[in-house]
Each structure stands twice: as structure tokens, then as C-alpha cells.
């Protein structure tokens, strides 16, 4: 793909170099203290807060001219916000973009970790809405920072225990809290807990950016990440009763698509690249023939 010319009015990848340096310092600190939320001087970005301004700032600070960028939202490359962010970097940094997980050097994501295992040298950038895992137990930042400092996480365990008492299960299904390298409890961003096991011991670097809340945190490669649980209620991930209707994959996270108002539904891979790769390799789901996209 030919790189479009970088507009003269803005610096490479939009942010000025001073700002990038400030963000890189925050990233270095975050990598040095896995799971710790580093405050940073988040800038106003040309997209709204909540649309991934934290992830965009992290990506802008680390991207180089020879990087290959992939952007996904809900696992898909072609949801509108993923398209918009990919176009932003194609325009402001002139970098190559891809939808293939294996070809990307930087993957910015909202709400998913790709199914395809990541490799050493790749960086996964998460967009984070609320970085504080304790926020909904304690709304005050002054309090939660103290709780982290004192490693005082009892409240979180009480919450999980109350879930079990009330529902028989831990009722947290996404943004499921993890403990990083035995120290900081961290919010993995609203990924389904299905993706939590991919956080630990990953060969890739994982960076988390929260723009509105002005925090950056990180999981360096090969870091221990444990999802919080109890001995008698061990952590478990979602399982789907049927395979992907298009590619037949089992053990992938599926989206439910409502087909009509008579209760017919289709389960398909949420990771569009994974699903397409499988179909290219000849895998075929039970409903693939009938459901080929018209476009």
C-alpha cells in the first residue's frame, strides 16, 4: 500500500515531539512497575473522550515510520471506530496498515485481544475507559491510590465473594480484575474475561492508555498475570455451546447476530481477521454457505 503524504500542518503522528517524550516517559515507568497506573498529562485529541484517546496517544507516542498498524474494535477491523482510528494514523503518520494480526507491529484494540497468539516484538495497545479496578467500589481517587499503595485489595475480594453468595458465580464477565506480577490489581480494560488468560506470559508488550482519566499502565512481556478468584471458585472463562457459524472455530470468542424476529441467531467469531484466515485455509462453518456477506 502506498503511504499517503503527511500533512504539513501537524507533526508525524499528530502529537508534537515534546508530548510524545512525556508519554514515552510515562510508558517506561509503567513498564518498570507492571500494573501500576502512571498519571500522565493527557492531551485533548481530535476525537472525543471515550473514543480511544488514551490508546491513540500511546500509539502516537510509540509509532515509527516503518511500523505496521492494525486497529480493532470488538475484535473487528471494520467497525466504524476502528476504521476511523486506522485512517487517522494512515493520514497523520503515513504508516502502513494491515488487518492481519501476524503482520502488525502495533495493534490498537478496544475490548478484545486477538485470537491469534502474539509474537515477541509486537505491541498491543488497549483503549481504557476506567483504568481504576477499584473505582466502582470506591469512587475517590485519593482513596484508591492509597489502597493500591498499601496493597489493600480486601474490598475487591469481598465484592467477588458477594457475587458468589448472590448468584452462585462471580458476576463479572468483562473488565475482570487481574493481579499483575503478584503486586498490583489491574483493570484489563473491558475485554471479556475470556481474553484474560492471554494477558499473562505474553511474548508481546501490552500497553494501556486511558485519555480522559489520564493514566497509562503496562504489562511487559512474560509477566505473571492472575485473574482474581477463590480456591473453591476458580476463575473460568466463557464457553460457547456451538462453533463459529462461518469458520467452524471452537474455543474462539463469538458474537451473537440476531437474524430475524423468530429467534434465529448466528454465532460468529468476534475476531474478523481470525475468522477470515480460517476460511481462507478451507475451514467452513455450518452456516457459511447461506451467510456469505453480500458485499
Amino acid at each position: 500500500m502506498s503511504a499517503p503524504a503527511v500533512p504539513a500542518a501537524y507533526n508525524f503522528a499528530y502529537l508534537d515531539e515534546q508530548t510524545k517524550r512525556m508519554i514515552r516517559r510515562a510508558i517506561l515507568k509503567a513498564v518498570a512497575i507492571p500494573g501500576y497506573q502512571v498519571p500522565f498529562a493527557s492531551r485533548e485529541m481530535p476525537m472525543p473522550y471515550g473514543w480511544g484517546t488514551g490508546g491513540v496517544q500511546v500509539t502516537a507516542a510509540i509509532i515509527g515510520a516503518d511500523d505496521v498498524l492494525k486497529v480493532i474494535d470488538q475484535g473487528a477491523d471494520d467497525t466504524t471506530n476502528a476504521v476511523s482510528i486506522r485512517a487517522f494514523f494512515a493520514k497523520t503518520a503515513g504508516v502502513a496498515t494491515t488487518t492481519r494480526t501476524a503482520d502488525a507491529t502495533i495493534i490498537q484494540t478496544r475490548h478484545r485481544i486477538p485470537e491469534t497468539a502474539l509474537k515477541a516484538g509486537q505491541i498491543l495497545v488497549f483503549q481504557v475507559p476506567i483504568p481504576e479496578p477499584l473505582r466502582f467500589l470506591e469512587p475517590r481517587e485519593t482513596e484508591t491510590r492509597t489502597m493500591h499503595a498499601l496493597e489493600e485489595y480486601g474490598l475487591m475480594h469481598v465484592k467477588l465473594y458477594e457475587d458468589i453468595a448472590r448468584h452462585g458465580h462471580i458476576a463479572t464477565t468483562y473488565a475482570y480484575p487481574v493481579k499483575v506480577e503478584g503486586r498490583y490489581v489491574m483493570d484489563p480494560s473491558p475485554i471479556p474475561k475470556f481474553d484474560n488468560p492471554k494477558l499473562g506470559d505474553s511474548p508481546a508488550l501490552q500497553l494501556f492508555g486511558a485519555g480522559r482519566e489520564k493514566r497509562i499502565y503496562a504489562i511487559p512481556p512474560h509477566t505473571r498475570v492472575e485473574s482474581l478468584d477463590f480456591e473453591d471458585h476458580p476463575f473460568e472463562v466463557q464457553r460457547f455451546a456451538e462453533p463459529c457459524g462461518l469458520c467452524g472455530a471452537t474455543g474462539a470468542y463469538l458474537d451473537e447476530v440476531i437474524l430475524d424476529d423468530r429467534g434465529n441467531r448466528l454465532f460468529v467469531c468476534s475476531d474478523t481477521d481470525f475468522c477470515e484466515e480460517r476460511r481462507r485455509a478451507g475451514h467452513c462453518g455450518a452456516k457459511a454457505a447461506a451467510m456469505e456477506p453480500t458485499s
Partner: peptide, 29 residues
């Protein structure tokens, strides 16, 4: 208000994945 409107309005963005996770749990319960 720029922060507030961003976060309130971001609910318009797709949340299929998280909603699916909730749906799965609710069906199990």
C-alpha cells in the same frame, strides 16, 4: 463538558463483546 460528553456519548460505540459476555452469564443464571 468535553470529557463528560465524550464518555456519555461513547455508549454509542459498539459494545457487542461485553454485552455478549453479560448475556452468556445471564442465560446461565
Amino acid at each position: 463538558n468535553v470529557q463528560a460528553t465524550g464518555f456519555v456519548e461513547h455508549l454509542k460505540l459498539p459494545h457487542y463483546v461485553d454485552f455478549q459476555a453479560e448475556l452468556e452469564l445471564l442465560r446461565r443464571l
